[in-house]
Structure formats: C-alpha cells, structure tokens
C-alpha cells in the first residue's frame, strides 16, 4: 500500500483534480467530513491531508511514501527526500520587493531583509555576493519595509495585488515556485513500481490539462 501526504489548502484542490483526471478513487477526499485518512476506492493508496511543513516531515520519516508540496516549503527544508516531479500547479514565485526608492541591489552599506523564508533569502543573497541581515517575520511581511523595519522583503507573490496595494515594487525574481512530488528515500526503492505508476498517471494528467 502507498500512503500519500497532500498539502492542505491552496494546493489541495488542484492536486485532487489531477488525481481525479487520472481516474483515482478520490471520492472520500472531495467529501471530507471529519476523517483524517482517506482510502482510495480504486487503488491501494491512502491519502492524508497535512500542513506543508508537516508533509515534508511525514515523507522524510517514511510515514508517508509520497508527498505533494510546494517548492517554497522544500526550499526551506533540509533535503532528506527525493523531489521527483514538477506538477506545474500552484505556480507563483519568490520575489525581492520594496518601496520604489529602496533598490537594495544597488544600495551601499548595511542591508536588512525581512522574510518568512530565511533559508531562501540567505541562499539568494549569497549567490548575489551580498552580505545581508535577515529579520524573520511571520505575517504581513509587506508592512516591514513601509514601517522601516527592513530595507526590502523576500516573499511569495501570486498576483502581485497585495504588493501593489502597499506601494511596493518587485526588484527581482528570486525563483519560480510550483507544486512538487516528493518521495521517501526508502520507499523509492521498496515500492518503486507503485510509485512509478502513480508518477506516470500524474504525468499523463498534466499533459491532458495542458491541452485544455
């Protein structure tokens, strides 16, 4: 049996849709009630819904064989899994943004960056060869440069509306994000055929979506 951890929320609907297109028995997932684990009515698979960070943890520890989770979460984790597929759903990007007059890439002197994603931020500025101080913020990151807590922010942007409303502009794209399939290292070996079948089905479902 294959156990699959799905990320709750934004990605959930799109992932379930892909599974549905592959004719998996996901009725239970669509009509959730209070259940936590959802058996597939056609395949030997059970699904469970967890928060993005937990999805990675469940897969790393082998409690889930396969997980579907955003690249943003993976970039902040420590890589104890295989990232085998890009589902091409849940697309957005990490951006560097600030007030129009605050282009930190051109600033001389000390730079402070506010972000929920310190690992991504650190890696990005290291690539740029810039020394920055990172300030971890948990919510409403857009507020930080306005109030002067930091010079700029690294955050996820979907449509850009929030940024615009707060008068912030994008200076650079840090990286593109989409949902990925991750696999536990031991499961990849011991359940290779089942996993490959699931991946192939998902791959076909993505192709169909592209034609639409």
């Amino acid at each position: 049996m294959l156990s699959v951890a799905l990320t709750k929320g934004r990605l959930e609907k799109q992932t379930v849709k892909l599974l549905e297109q592959s004719s998996y028995g996901i009725e239970a997932l669509k009509d959730k009630g209070r259940a936590l684990v959802f058996p597939d009515s056609k395949k030997d698979i059970s699904y469970f819904l967890v928060k993005a960070n937990d999805c990675v943890t469940y897969v790393e520890h082998g409690v889930a064989d396969v997980g579907v989770v955003g690249k943003d979460t993976l970039l902040e984790s420590n890589d104890q899994y295989y990232e085998v597929m890009d589902l091409g759903i849940g697309k957005c990007r990490f951006i560097l943004a600030s007030l129009p007059e605050n282009n930190v890439l051109k600033k001389q002197g000390h730079i402070k960056i506010g972000t929920k994603y310190p690992t991504v931020t650190k890696r990005y500025f290291k690539q740029k060869g810039l020394d920055v101080e990172i300030i971890k913020i948990d919510g409403s990151v857009e507020l930080a440069p306005i109030l002067g807590l930091c010079d700029a922010i690294v955050d996820i942007m979907e449509t850009g509306t929030t940024l615009k409303e707060n008068g912030l502009v994008v200076f650079d794209t840090v990286c593109e994000i989409s949902a990925r399939v991750i696999v536990n290292k031991a499961s990849f070996r011991l359940k290779r055929n089942e996993i490959q079948e699931l991946l192939n089905d998902l791959k076909n479902a993505i192709k169909e979506t592209d034609y639409d």
Partner: peptide
C-alpha cells in the same frame, strides 16, 4: 541497505 518502515538507509 533500506528496510520498509525506516526512512533512511
């Protein structure tokens, strides 16, 4: 070597 139920080698 990998065994079922253990996430790493």
């Amino acid at each position: 070597a990998y065994a079922e139920g253990i996430g790493d080698s």
